[in-house]
């Protein structure tokens, strides 16, 4: 699959944008020399890419994030280094946006620069098991609001169907028909399906569900 120089993950609150952006950046690093993950989440002070700085840096992925992330002066902040994503043509970048239109606003100010690039990928992450996103009409509304705030048009859907720790292969296979319906209604291709690594062997991704992104454990001191 063609890899865009800049790939942006957007979507509903809690759809899995940060987790997917992290894993996608790590996967890109297998094929690319200079990969950056740019944290533009100005909405949620929890679940930040900066929690995984050590892991990213060990894998050779540069993390561009707010200097205030995970400090006591946490505030909405677009990293000053964010412009490098646009200016440094050697970099293959993944941008993690905050949830909904409030989060998408962060990338709106760069819209003209992004539109001028030949192949920016702007992906809508969908977890149909989240509330308020399990119906196509609701997804259409979220798409409209995000596109307006980001001043960009989506180029693809990412299927991140999951029920957290309770996810089984059945939950993923049962999501295909919903995603296909959403894809047709929106006129957007499904570019990727994300699956927890231990479930991947039990699944053979059907045509039309995009490339497979395997999700591993990121880090956890202990389980709750």
């Amino acid at each position: 699959m063609h890899t865009a120089r800049i790939t942006i993950f957007a979507g509903h609150y809690g759809s899995g944008k940060t987790t997917l952006a992290l894993h996608y950046a790590l996967a890109l690093r297998q094929a690319r020399q200079h990969v950056a993950l740019c944290d533009m989440d100005i909405v949620n002070p929890y679940f930040r890419t900066a929690d995984h700085r050590a892991r990213l840096e060990a894998a050779g992925v540069e993390l561009i994030s707010s200097p205030y992330a995970n400090t006591n002066v946490e505030m909405p902040w677009i990293p000053t280094q964010a412009l490098r994503v646009l200016d440094d043509e050697r970099l293959t970048s993944v941008i993690d946006l905050g949830g909904d239109s409030g989060g998408a606003l962060a990338v709106g100010r760069f819209a003209e620069r992004l539109q001028a690039l030949p192949d920016t990928a702007f992906w809508l992450v969908v977890n149909p098991y989240r509330p308020l996103t399990g119906e196509v009409d609701a997804l259409l509304a979220i798409r409209r609001e995000i596109e307006r705030a980001a001043r960009l048009r989506f180029t693809g859907l990412v299927n991140n169907a999951n029920l957290g720790a309770e996810t089984t292969a059945r939950h993923i296979t049962e999501s295909y028909s919903f995603l296909q319906g959403a894809s047709e209604a929106m006129g957007l291709p499904i570019v990727m399906t994300a699956v927890r690594r231990e479930l991947a062997p039990a699944l053979s991704l059907p045509r039309g569900m995009g490339q497979l992104l395997e999700l591993g454990e990121l880090s956890s001191r202990f389980s709750l």
Binding site: G14, N127, P128, Y129, L163, G164, F178
Partner: peptide, 16 residues
């Protein structure tokens, strides 16, 4: 589409 939904605790309170 399923018997369960994936929710944040805060969302679960609001929906309930």
């Amino acid at each position: 589409m399923a018997e369960k939904v994936l929710m944040k605790g805060n969302e679960a309170i609001a929906e309930a």
